[in-house]
């Protein structure tokens, strides 16, 4: 087929750079090996998986991650929707708001994580809200808020595009029919932009799942809350336990897949190419 000639290079490269490491991860996860000493790999079967699945701290990390994902997504959607509605109406300000809305997303996540951590541990938020020593958990919450701050703009852009796709006559017609403001929102605007909301939810959820910078900069010995990504990182690149880390990576990938498999049908994410 003619089309495949155009498509093949990209698909091949994509498969090589994704499927190859995933396959390697699966293979590594069945061994006990370390990053530094490549020589002493030992096949251990599914031992790594039983270790992880029976580990309390792993499941706590997963629970914390899912909680972060849920909170971050809901906050981003609510704020993003409010901002999108406001931005849509104030077309005069578009030259400025267009730049402003994406600026937080351009700031490096690591920088955002560091300054948000500092804000609650030693910075302005301490004085403003009378915070005492917030500890690693508080700092983690702060960096998560920072992630919400970074992601709200892009969420607003997605929702704004969805909002602009709702024909104005749909709304005027509902007004003419005597729909109240509430009915217009729940029966006209939200359903009509449902595809945009669904996509924003899925994309933001999977993005929140892979947050790594915040947990990295707020981690302290004895921290009670850790995230799944952080545990993967810690195992692979701090303890150099490649095999165990690979097993965790596989579980993390499965987790992302499960999240997507849950969100896509529930929200009826559709996109025709």
């Amino acid at each position: 087929m003619r089309g495949w000639r155009w498509l093949a290079p990209a698909v091949l490269v994509l498969l090589v750079v994704t499927v190859w490491p995933i396959g390697r991860a699966v293979w590594l996860s069945l061994t006990r090996s370390t990053l530094t000493g490549a020589g002493d790999q030992r096949f251990v079967g599914i031992d790594n998986y039983t270790d992880i699945l029976s580990s309390r701290s792993w499941w706590l990390a997963v629970a914390a991650t899912l909680a972060i994902v849920a909170v971050a997504v809901v906050l981003q959607l609510v704020l993003g929707l409010a901002f999108a509605v406001a931005l849509r109406r104030l077309t005069v300000a578009w030259p400025v708001t267009r730049v402003l809305v994406l600026l937080p997303f351009g700031l490096l996540a690591i920088v955002s994580a560091v300054v948000w951590r500092d804000a609650v541990t030693s910075g302005f938020a301490v004085d403003w809200f009378g915070l005492d020593d917030v500890g690693p958990t508080g700092a983690l919450v702060a960096t998560t808020v920072g992630e919400v701050w970074r992601g709200t703009g892009i969420t607003a852009v997605i929702l704004l595009a969805g909002l602009l796709r709702v024909p104005t006559t749909l709304i005027t017609s509902a007004i003419a029919d005597g729909a109240t403001a509430r009915q217009r929102l729940t029966r006209v605007v939200l359903p009509a932009m449902a595809p945009a909301i669904a996509v924003a939810t899925t994309y933001r959820a999977l993005d929140a799942l892979r947050i790594l910078e915040g947990p990295l900069v707020t981690d302290a010995p004895g921290a009670s809350v850790r995230t799944a990504s952080f545990v993967v990182w810690d195992t692979t690149f701090s303890s150099f336990e490649t095999g165990l880390g690979a097993a965790m990576s596989v579980v993390l990938l499965l987790l992302a897949g499960l999240l997507a498999a849950f969100l896509v049908p529930v929200l009826r994410v559709r996109r025709v190419v």
Binding site: T172, A176, D177, G178, V188, P191, A192, A194
Partner: peptide, 28 residues
Amino acid sequence: PRGRDVSMVFEDYALHPHLDVFDNLAFS
């Protein structure tokens, strides 16, 4: 408009894309 209770057909139809024909007919 709610108080005036007038029905109007728009030139570009203003149909709700997420509703089927029955629900569109019922909407107003």
